[in-house]
């Protein structure tokens, strides 16, 4: 199989493709879980983004996330729908937050802090798109506080899970850790 890949395909590219595939799978599975409140879900696929960020760097995290957003939308049939744009806006906002915090990781900020910051940025980006474009209602900010609380909880959970995944020797065998901290 490997012989059919072009020589320019690096180990890193394969790692990005594998992580993106895992992320798409996680997101599709998560879409099947009914949520008690519309618009609130754990965002487990962000664990994969965090792992990409901490092992392969920010650009790989961007690649994995964008492939995941588009790939999951294709599978779920939401491509170019409001759901897709909300997903993309959240992903871009989360990536921006991760990009800002990247210089501090992993020396000063661990997976937990990154996950919380990304989750808060994610919901804020989604909210701004929803409020600005999709439902420009003056009272929409009233739904933001519960969403932020949900993001804080979801970010903590995904952060803890990401830390556990990174600590697992079975994972560390497969992912070479980034040299530059």
């Amino acid at each position: 199989m490997t012989a059919s890949f072009p020589d320019t395909l690096t180990q890193r590219d394969r790692a990005i493709a594998a992580l993106a595939a895992i992320a798409i799978g996680v997101q599709v599975l998560e879409a099947a879980i009914p949520s008690p409140v519309p618009g609130i879900k754990p965002g487990l696929a962000n664990i994969v983004t965090l792992i990409a960020l901490l092992t392969l760097g920010w650009r790989a995290a961007v690649a994995v996330t964008l492939i995941r957003v588009v790939g999951a939308a294709l599978l779920l049939g939401t491509l170019l729908s409001p759901t897709f744009w909300l997903s993309l806006a959240g992903a871009l906002a989360a990536l921006a937050a991760l990009g800002l915090l990247r210089p501090l990781a992993p020396r000063h900020v661990g997976a937990l802090g990154l996950a919380i910051a990304a989750a808060m940025a994610h919901i804020t980006g989604q909210f701004l798109l929803a409020w600005g474009v999709i439902i420009p209602h003056p009272n929409l900010p009233l739904v933001l506080p519960p969403l932020l609380l949900a993001a804080l909880i979801a970010g903590s959970v995904t952060g803890i899970l990401a830390a556990h995944v990174l600590a697992d020797p079975r994972i560390q065998r497969h992912v070479r850790l980034a040299r530059h901290p």
Binding site: L54, L101, P106, H108, G110, G113, L152, S156, H164, A167
Partner: peptide, 21 residues
């Protein structure tokens, strides 16, 4: 240094996020 442990920045971010909520 592993990638999985807690850092002081985690506490700062968690506190800031809680304050924002």
């Amino acid at each position: 240094m592993t990638l999985s442990g807690l850092r002081w920045g985690d506490g700062v971010i968690a506190a800031l996020a809680s304050g924002a909520v």
